[in-house]
Structures are given as structure tokens and as C-alpha cells.
Amino acid sequence: MPEVTLYGTQLCPYCRRAEQLLTNKGITDLKKIAVDSDPAQMDVMIARTGRRSVPQIFIGETHVGGYDDLAALDRAGRLDELLQG
């Protein structure tokens, strides 16, 4: 299973929803990077994604996008195959 990384903030409701969706999919070792408590990580996130909004989610090296993108992948039935690698 590929590493799943979530760039987010502690107060972001979409970050919590993304985390919950991933937990429901069996992801127990989610790598969470809090860009509000480590501003240097915000720069890393922007460099990797070109976006400033959170959450930003990676499955392996694949940039999924934000929560809406993650949920759309799930509805389309493509999230499980990404999570399987």
C-alpha cells in the first residue's frame, strides 16, 4: 500500500473529512503534515502542488488534490485502486 500524505491544518473541517474518509478506507498510518504549526511545510506543499488551500492529499507520488477531489475519486470507484498501489 502506498504512503498517504495529507497536508492540512488543525482547524480545517475538510482536512478532518478527508482523514475520516481515508480511515474508513483502512488507512491507519496517514502521514499528516500540519502546515499551520510548521510554516516551512506550507512552502513545501505549495512547491509540490502549486496550491495554497488545504487539504492537499498525496497517495504515493500521485497528487489527488483536496477533499472534494478525494471524495470524487471515491464516488467514481477509483480511490480503492489508487490505495492498493
Rank of each mutant, 00 (worst) to 15 (best):
T9D: 01
T9E: 01
T9L: 01
L11K: 05
L11H: 08
L11P: 04
C12M: 10
C12H: 10
C12K: 10
P13H: 02
P13M: 03
C15Y: 05
R16E: 12
A18W: 01
E19L: 13
Q20M: 13
L21A: 08
L21D: 07
L22H: 05
L22A: 05
T23L: 13
N24M: 11
N24C: 09
K25M: 15
K25V: 11
K25L: 14
G26W: 14
G26Y: 15
I27E: 05
T28P: 02
T28M: 03
D29A: 12
D29C: 10
L30E: 02
L30V: 08
L30G: 07
L30A: 06
L30S: 06
L30F: 06
K31L: 15
K31D: 15
K31C: 15
K32N: 10
K32M: 11
I33T: 10
I33H: 10
I33P: 11
I33W: 12
I33E: 12
A34W: 14
A34H: 11
A34P: 01
V35E: 05
D36Y: 11
D36C: 08
S37Y: 15
S37L: 14
D38I: 14
D38M: 14
D38E: 15
P39L: 08
P39N: 06
A40P: 00
A40S: 15
A40Q: 13
Q41C: 09
M42L: 15
D43Y: 00
D43A: 05
V44Q: 10
V44N: 06
M45N: 03
M45S: 05
I46F: 02
I46E: 00
A47W: 01
A47L: 01
R48M: 07
R48W: 02
R48F: 03
R48N: 06
T49R: 00
T49M: 03
T49P: 00
G50V: 06
G50N: 08
G50Y: 05
G50S: 09
R51L: 09
V54K: 02
V54D: 02
P55G: 02
P55F: 00
Q56K: 03
I57R: 04
F58H: 00
F58M: 01
I59H: 03
I59A: 04
I59E: 04
G60V: 02
G60A: 06
E61Y: 05
T62P: 01
T62M: 03
T62H: 04
T62E: 07
H63L: 04
H63N: 05
H63D: 05
V64Y: 01
V64L: 00
V64K: 03
G65M: 09
G65E: 12
G66F: 00
Y67H: 00
D68M: 07
D68E: 13
D69E: 13
A71G: 04
A72L: 11
L73W: 01
L73R: 00
D74L: 07
D74R: 08
D74N: 10
D74V: 07
A76V: 03
A76G: 07
A76Y: 04
G77T: 12
R78A: 14
R78L: 12
R78P: 10
R78E: 15
L79E: 10
L79A: 10
D80G: 10
E81R: 09
E81D: 14
E81Y: 08
L82M: 09
L82D: 02
L82Q: 04
L83F: 13
L83N: 14
Q84H: 03
Q84N: 03
G85C: 10
G85D: 13
G85R: 09
G85W: 06
G85Y: 07
